[in-house]
Amino acid sequence: MTDRLKELVDAGVSIWLDDLSRQRLTSGNLEGMIHDQHVSGVTTNPTIFAKAISDAGAYAEQVARLAAEGVSTDEAIRVITTGDVRDAADLFKPVYDDTDGVDGRVSIEVEPGLARDTEKTINQAKELWEIVGRENVFIKIPATKEGIPAITATLAEGISVNVTLIFSLDRYKAVADAFLTGVEKAIDNGHDVTKLGSVASFFVSRVDTEVDKRLDAIGTDEAKALKGKAAIANARLAFEVYEEVFATDRWREIETVGAKPQRPLWASTGVKDPSYKDTMYVEELVTSGVVNTMPQATIDAFADHGEVKGDTVRGTYDEARKVIADLEGLGISYDQVVQVLEDEGVSKFEASWTELQDTVTSALKKAAAK
């Protein structure tokens, strides 16, 4: 039987699960995915936690205890989410050790409402790092303009960072520079940068969702021929930036003390348009040195019928540039698309936080009424 996920890992792609729940932890499900599906990391967000808490009775005992203690909703969220992340980090510690800290990482996000506030983001990143207390944790910080200096400051404290919500190439260049500056400062501050990790999470499928909508509005054959191409082109050009940044003398100097590069991470890789192959955003973004964080359905789909067709990123840059140029030629502005996506992304993050608050508030009230 073909182990397609193993082929993907052998091609240099780290498979991370975009999900976490108490039930996955206690049932042995997540441990099984490490061994059977080559999962080497986990990413979380407020929507994932809201679903976990509303779907499972696994939290009932803890919620009842927190309700009896009279804690606030936000305090309860902090206790529940950091507890799950800590337990997941412990589960992934052997992977972390085996890969010298490259994989075995678990991400937890700063509150989305702080996305436009640099200082509060930095402070909460430090708090989450201290509360979880595991060196294989990533603190997720969004790549807003206000998030860029927070990334540098957090890394400078020796705290590993998952930079999330990246859409544009220009913003990614700023993220990479923030990473380099942060690691340089961490070195100056005396931190052990061999343990300092970072990924830059480029959102994929949402780019096609926005661009395809505009192509449908144009409606010409030329427009239809470009559907489903923008997201992959954008991610491939991001990898070109990655190659350029981590070939510089500046990086080479940082690398001499054992620092690891900030790997590109492909996020939002579940297909939104059912007419596209469900493994498209995995198959077309295969290259060594990247992470693909997938929902369970995408992992299962790839295990069943995914194809590793060699490196599908390196050497594709001119073709990718032509896709972006062709879209511009049709009047679809790249800069406008990525700005819309960032603004929407921040709004969606905030809405998901509200959803999590509502879920936990409801659970606390039910527990208190018993």
Score class of each variant (00 low, 15 high):
residue 332 I to Y: 07
residue 355 E to N: 12
residue 355 E to F: 00
residue 287 T to K: 11
residue 321 R to P: 11
residue 306 G to Q: 03
residue 344 E to M: 07
residue 297 A to V: 10
residue 351 A to T: 10
residue 302 F to L: 11
residue 277 K to V: 13
residue 301 A to Q: 10
residue 325 A to I: 00
residue 307 E to K: 14
residue 318 D to E: 15
residue 353 W to A: 15
residue 328 E to Q: 14
residue 300 D to E: 15
residue 307 E to I: 10
residue 301 A to H: 09
residue 350 E to R: 10
residue 273 D to F: 00
residue 335 D to H: 12
residue 354 T to N: 12
residue 287 T to L: 11
residue 267 A to R: 00
residue 289 G to T: 04
residue 343 D to N: 14
residue 353 W to G: 09
residue 321 R to M: 11
residue 354 T to I: 07
residue 289 G to R: 06
residue 311 D to G: 09
residue 265 L to I: 02
residue 352 S to M: 12
residue 259 A to R: 05
residue 342 E to N: 08
residue 355 E to M: 10
residue 307 E to F: 01
residue 291 V to I: 15
residue 301 A to I: 06
residue 283 E to A: 10
residue 325 A to M: 07
residue 281 Y to A: 04
residue 268 S to F: 06
residue 348 K to N: 13
residue 309 K to M: 08
residue 266 W to T: 00
residue 327 L to I: 07
residue 333 S to H: 01
residue 313 V to I: 13
residue 272 K to G: 11
residue 267 A to Q: 01
residue 283 E to G: 09
residue 321 R to F: 11
residue 283 E to P: 04
residue 274 P to Q: 07
residue 269 T to C: 06
residue 292 N to E: 01
residue 318 D to I: 04
residue 260 K to R: 12
residue 263 R to W: 05
residue 308 V to L: 09
residue 284 E to L: 09
residue 313 V to L: 04
residue 288 S to F: 07
residue 349 F to I: 06
residue 273 D to L: 01
residue 332 I to K: 06
residue 333 S to T: 00
residue 334 Y to W: 13
residue 322 K to F: 02
residue 350 E to L: 01
residue 316 T to K: 14
residue 351 A to I: 00
residue 340 V to F: 03
residue 345 G to A: 10
residue 320 A to L: 08
residue 267 A to W: 00
residue 329 G to W: 07
residue 331 G to I: 02
residue 345 G to V: 05
residue 316 T to P: 05
residue 259 A to W: 04
residue 319 E to A: 14
residue 263 R to P: 05
residue 267 A to C: 05
residue 354 T to C: 00
residue 306 G to S: 08
residue 331 G to L: 05
residue 269 T to D: 06
residue 350 E to D: 12
residue 322 K to T: 14
residue 272 K to Y: 13
residue 292 N to A: 02
residue 294 M to A: 08
residue 339 Q to G: 01
residue 260 K to E: 05
residue 272 K to H: 13
residue 324 I to Q: 12
residue 311 D to A: 08
residue 265 L to G: 04
residue 323 V to C: 00
residue 300 D to Y: 07
residue 272 K to W: 13
residue 352 S to R: 06
residue 323 V to T: 08
residue 335 D to P: 03
residue 327 L to G: 04
residue 263 R to E: 02
residue 324 I to C: 09
residue 261 P to R: 10
residue 314 R to V: 13
residue 346 V to A: 09
residue 321 R to Q: 15
residue 327 L to Y: 07
residue 303 A to M: 07
residue 293 T to S: 11
residue 338 V to T: 14
residue 350 E to V: 14
residue 328 E to N: 12
residue 325 A to C: 03
residue 325 A to W: 04
residue 291 V to F: 15
residue 347 S to L: 11
residue 274 P to H: 02
residue 326 D to M: 03
residue 277 K to E: 15
residue 316 T to G: 04
residue 342 E to F: 09
residue 310 G to Q: 08
residue 319 E to Q: 14
residue 272 K to A: 15
residue 287 T to S: 13
residue 304 D to M: 06
residue 262 Q to F: 09
residue 273 D to V: 00
residue 329 G to R: 04
residue 289 G to P: 10
residue 299 I to N: 01
residue 281 Y to S: 05
residue 346 V to Y: 08
residue 325 A to Y: 05
residue 327 L to R: 01
residue 261 P to I: 03
